[in-house]
Nucleic acid binder design. Sequence first.
RNA 1: GCUCCGAUGGUGAAAUUGGUAGACACUGGAGACUUAAAAUCUCCCGCCGCAAGGCGUGCCGGUUCGAUUCCGGCUCGGAGCACCA
Length: 875
Amino acid sequence: MQDKYSPADVEKAAQSHWKAIDAYKAVEHDPRFPKGKYYACSMLPYPSGKLHMGHVRNYTINDVMYRYLRMNGYNVLMPMGWDAFGMPAENAAMANNVPPAQWTYSNIAHMREQMESMGLAIDWSREMTACKPEYYKWNQWMFLKMLEKGIIYKKTGTVNWDPIDQTVLANEQVVDGRGWRSGALIEKREIPMYYARITDYADELLAYVDDKLPGWPERVRTMQTNWIGKSTGVRFAFPHQIKGADGQLIQDGKMYVFTTRPDTVMGVTFCAVAAEHPLAIHAAQTNPELAAFNAECKLGSVIEADMATMEKKGMPTGLFVTHPLTGEQVEVWVGNYVLITYGDGAVMGVPAHDERDFAFAKKYKLPIKQVIKAEGKEFSTDAWQEWYGDKDISIVTNSGKYDGLRYAEAVDAVAADMQAKGLGEKKITFRLRDWGISRQRYWGTPIPMIHCGDCGVVPVPEKDLPVVLPEDCVPDGTGNPLNKYEAFLKCDCPQCGKPARRETDTMDTFVDSSWYYMRYTSPGSDKMVDERNDYWMPMDQYIGGIEHAVMHLLYARFWTKIMRDFGLVKFDEPFVNLLTQGMVLNETYYREDAAGKKTWFNPADVDLTLDDKGRPQGAVSKADGQPVNIGGTEKMSKSKNNGIDPQAQIEQYGADTARLFTMFASPPEQTLEWSGSGVEGANRFLRRVWGFGYAQRDAIAAIGAPLTAVATTDAGKTLRRELHKVLQQADYDVKRIQYNTVVSACMKMLNTLESAKDADAASLSEGYSIFLRLLNPVAPHITHVLWEELGYAKAHGDILNVQWPQVDPAALEQSEIEMMIQVNGKLRGSVVVAKTADKASIEAAALANEAVQKFIEGTPKKVIVVPGKLINIVV
RNA sequence: GCUCCGAUGGUGAAAUUGGUAGACACUGGAGACUUAAAAUCUCCCGCCGCAAGGCGUGCCGGUUCGAUUCCGGCUCGGAGCACCA
């Protein structure tokens, strides 16, 4: 045994041992594990090039869980794969003139190596890669089945269009309303796309959030509930008659709107339609100013946050519609905030009770008519007040027969009257929209459709799947290169056999990530999933970033329900427990030039200057010694140059140190701040772990490295009491996935062990074995090697498979306890009492306490005794 | 703009159900060892105060014998917003 801790040697030894025994291969119904299966999975990484600290954190959490559960008798599965389709590969291709496939596969190879150096308990025999035909074939297969059942359908959708590069842009590629490469002002464009009817499942997705996901964080469930956004409202029509220039009736129609506030319908003072609405188009024919405004409305991105914060603009059409209940004429405006693809492309305007309408009416001096009042509230058209829109306290007013009604009553009454007139009815709506899955991009799953001049759009027959994506294209930023790829485009129509053209749109990568976790269960299967999926799924624990709280998780839930309805799986929800890990942050440092341009300095290249109390005063660049600004702690990113390379950390300190630090620095769900000195501290701790083992190796090996002991000395008894007490707490913490305090429990144990070297050898052996087992999930390499070197492995087998340490209640027994004494809720002293003492004697002992007496005058009003904890004396 | 979350010493954090605020670390300080440095070891470290004591969990208020924890109102920071993954 080496006297000094050498992480490189230790980790190499442990990893080659695991490889030799194929330690992490998961087998269905493995008889070695009596507690049954446990499927713990991390969210699929995108193979961007190399691991970042977010990955390290994610997989370490997963790995700690794996090792803990395995020691507790579970058959644990930890798989890994690659979200290998997507935009970054196309961007890299453009930058380096290398096909996305080549870039992607070489990144995967490198990142797999990095994961291996972290010592993760991954079963690599189940690895999946989204860009391989054997995987995406099943995306296509599902697409065809969903199309056949009407779950996938075609309609137009709005996209960002770059008029210079002549290409569709992703939201990420739109910067301040301009194309990221061309700088051109973005336009909205309507194009045909495929949609999945997730709204048909909205009710079920919502109901299950409430009832069947108790293992999910409350905040994620709330976010999903709000995203689905169920509301009851009324869809109704404003009838209208449009006359030509000669006064002749040319249109006798109905303009439909939807509202969640039908109780305010008597307060309508205008209506607004999208620029693409038939009324807007009609009015623009004779109004050049309006035509120009309509064109302006089509500028800008489709990003919702942009839409919500942009200046609300409008222009009157000169057309009027009839209010369905009052018969009044209401003017129709075009509004830049009304979208043709949502609802009917038209909204009613009630300025008194909708904040956006209020601002719009103020701006264009439209009438504001109060139709809602609330007790003790004063209405004024001067400024918007929160209560104007609060349906919980509203009472209808100025609305004729509806006056005095509460929200729910008013909704019913208005809906009934609309229905009686044949102009509308109650409608349940969802904020959730159908899932647009078409992408006008190369590097994705080809949509299996064929365009035939005679037959129209024809699905690819199942027997012809997969439609294989060519892997040798290099995109150039001007649209999908498949459109120029003759060998891919050319095909025969499956119906008539005539020459036809393949669809070149590919699928949203969220399709890949909606079911990959099920493919892990069925590697190599000639079905999408097979009976092995019934064993492993539903997943027991899913781990990933909070940024996926809504979209990915909702799509995966939806996809699962489709698979269930197709008879492919037997469960309703894919993820029983969910852990949303926090982001990894680091300090930022920068200099600003005269033009305000910031240059960011990596924290590794900066020295802090401290005052005499050790507080940071400023920072200087190591390169030139000149000051740099401290920019605050932010998410590690390329743009802020504050990333830390996991590879460099592993090379310098070893994987165990990197794992230990990331587990210790924060609880898994919170953000984690990187700290170079914190890493040093973690490494220092592991050196002490090694040092203790080295010092005790002969004593422990000599008595056969027992895992339990009966203390024969007082020092041994104290040691056992303290260790088992810490173990009890750590056991609670590891179960609730609070790994930071599990690590601190390990630190407490080592502190205790180091100060108890007089204890008997059996107690020490038991104590160190408890400590190694508790630390093993976090730092598996060093504990594996120490377990062997001290003779534990010889006596009990690999630490990987040994039983998790158990708390010995006998070790915890104590006859006396210390209780705190408060006077009026303030701590004034403490008293040691027998564990069995009754309330009266505790009270008497507390009142007799000298330190306490000087705060008590006369008889106490009340004495509260909390057994085992404290006494509060109220005077 | 909308939805959700968070805030505790110089720093990361802990406190299981409303019951000892600051465990465990990091930084800093003092000392030991050393020719010296590194490493290691020992002690100190919420703020104010000589002390007694007072104050203290983002801010303001409430409930309670007792509030980091529960309630109401704010401030600041973060995540998501449907074509980033």
